[in-house]
Design a protein around this nucleic acid. Structure first.
Lengths: 329, 329
DNA sequence: GTGAAAGCGCTAACAA
DNA sequence: TTGTTAGCGCTTTCAC
């Protein structure tokens, strides 16, 4: 029995095989538990069935610790696995690993990448330029890349979520609403403040700048922010936090200062991580379908890789967020 | 200029090259930004500079959401990256993906694996048997594999941590100490109850079985456990929880029932995830150097792969845990 | 110091 | 239906 027959059997190859031969091959395969060499196949087919997951971060560590990214990763890796692809994770420190990244792409180690974007299109050019130059199929998540690269993207509407959250607070009668924001290097943090501002504006409320604190996703600063807000002459009656971890800390800090939530102060978060369900009282927050985001990104990428007719034109999906009312507002 | 020269230049190859030739090659490489094809090198060298991260789980989803695993992953991936290796993540559902796993290993897609073990040595045999049969270098984390496989491992001492936590509570004068345990399919959960029991025993306290609840890592059951403990005639004055998330929920539930922590009831957790520092009051807990665990696992694996003299004999490291006193006990 | 050529394991076009 | 063979991109031995 010759190599070609084995190949035909294995791949339902371009030629058909006799039942007898197939049997023998199958038996031999089972006996030796033979498995084709991935590198050899990769070399032959020019594809590796591996997808690179480029996880942008500002700090050089800590990507995996975030429950937010964990949710996305779960969807991403799970879906890739279900469709027979492997996931290669690479924590990409912004402004650093670009040369290594180029090596990854040019060496054809991955068939495609999904890249987590944190900033505005023009700031992500250096990164996307490299990806585009290598021609590796790419889907952006969280933030879209610049139009001209033509990469698909799966994002969600930060501004809308923040707007909805604040509009909800306004509808409850709140007029002084504080904001504990995230790290403004993240477009997501900026979009959330913007949504907050827009909601106030549309209700003819002039935003009191002493009530908005954006510094980092850092719990310590969130604590300090609360302390300062309630030091002032007219403290807020509600706080919109840029994410759930921040909201959690805000609730803790309010309690420490003797304020009850939601009786004295209402709090709304963003993301809907597990903590928001488990904390007491459970957090009212803006839910992002993060798992789904991962799943869709995987789907989109595989569509363009296998250029399914549907995927011929790379799509940009904007997942909708939803205010989930629990007990803090 | 011939292919061999390029190779020599690129790899500081087995032959030396003239300065002139080297220059020309280097220039050409830069101009075309040439990068060697990973599959071809993989085929040639029989190695891919990729490490498989086999993340065992019982449920088919949710590995990445756990802050515990996130910390390990951070250390693992970070260290691999620093040493020039890629990380392939594979969520391995216990009792399922064994055939796919065998394919991964036999296809020589990875140079080695670090495998997260959840159970006792004899229960992990099917998995390790496959890895051993394929001869792929392997390091176990969290739990060691059976001796005979000869795989290195990086673990930590659950029993000791639990013992220390409970001994500490006893030293504070507590006599009725409850335990809210984890999912007993996890050896880690069993070891933690065992440590709890041993501490009580050594202090001549008969464990009151109405005070130990092991069901799952599930917050809901933890809540129910607390409720039941404090329904009884003589409720505990302290609770040792099998991990920090559980401890957090326990504190919340105690507060809901009108008990103050630590004045009325003391609580100690396990793991030392970020939440335990951020919650209020900050959690007294047993710290596991999880990041370090990942780093060491990577180091050990690379040692055996590159068979450094030091790594010739695969080592088993047991990282030491440490009670960190904060405010809940 | 450099070029030619074989071979890593696989697939598919070409012959038989 | 099957066997033979070239070639994917790289490295390295061998001959020059």
């Amino acid at each position: 029995v010759s190599p070609s027959v084995v190949s035909y059997v294995l791949n339902g190859g371009p030629r058909s095989t006799s039942v007898a031969a197939r049997e023998r091959v199958l038996n031999a395969i089972r006996e030796l538990d033979y498995h084709p060499n991935a590198s050899a196949r990769g070399l032959r087919f020019q594809q590796t069935r591996t997808i690179g997951l480029l996880l942008s971060t500002f700090e050089s560590s800590g990507v995996f610790e975030s429950p937010y990214i964990g949710l996305i990763l779960g969807g991403l890796v799970g879906q890739l696995k279900a469709r027979g692809y492997w996931a290669l994770v690479y924590p990409l420190v912004i402004g650093q690993d670009l040369d290594v990244l180029e090596g990854l792409l040019r060496s054809k180690k991955v068939d495609g990448v999904v890249v987590r974007l944190l900033q505005e299109p023009h700031q992500t050019h250096p990164l996307l330029e490299i990806i585009a130059a290598t021609g590796v199929p790419c889907v952006c998540i969280e933030q879209p890349g610049a139009e001209r690269f033509g990469f698909g993207s799966v994002t969600y509407d930060d501004g809308r979520g923040a707007y909805d959250a604040v509009a909800y607070l306004l509808a409850q009668g709140h007029r002084r609403i504080g904001h504990v924001g995230g790290d403004l290097r993240y477009l997501t943090a900026r979009a959330r403040v913007a949504g907050y501002r827009r909601a106030l504006l549309e209700n003819d409320i002039v935003a009191d700048e002493s009530l908005v604190y954006c510094d980092a996703w850092n719990p310590g600063t969130a604590r300090a922010a609360v302390a300062r807000m309630f030091d002032g002459a007219s403290p807020p009656t509600a706080i919109f936090a840029a994410n759930d971890s921040l909201a959690f800390v805000v609730v803790e800090e309010l309690r420490k200062h003797g304020y009850r939530v939601p009786e004295d102060v209402s709090v709304v978060g963003f993301d809907d991580i597990e903590l928001s369900r488990e904390m007491d009282p459970p957090l009212t927050t803006v839910r992002i379908p993060l798992h789904q985001l991962g799943v869709r990104a995987a789907d989109l990428l595989l569509e363009v890789i296998n250029d399914d007719p549907a995927g011929a034109v790379p799509r940009s999906e904007v997942l909708s967020v939803e205010l989930v009312r629990r007990s803090t507002a």
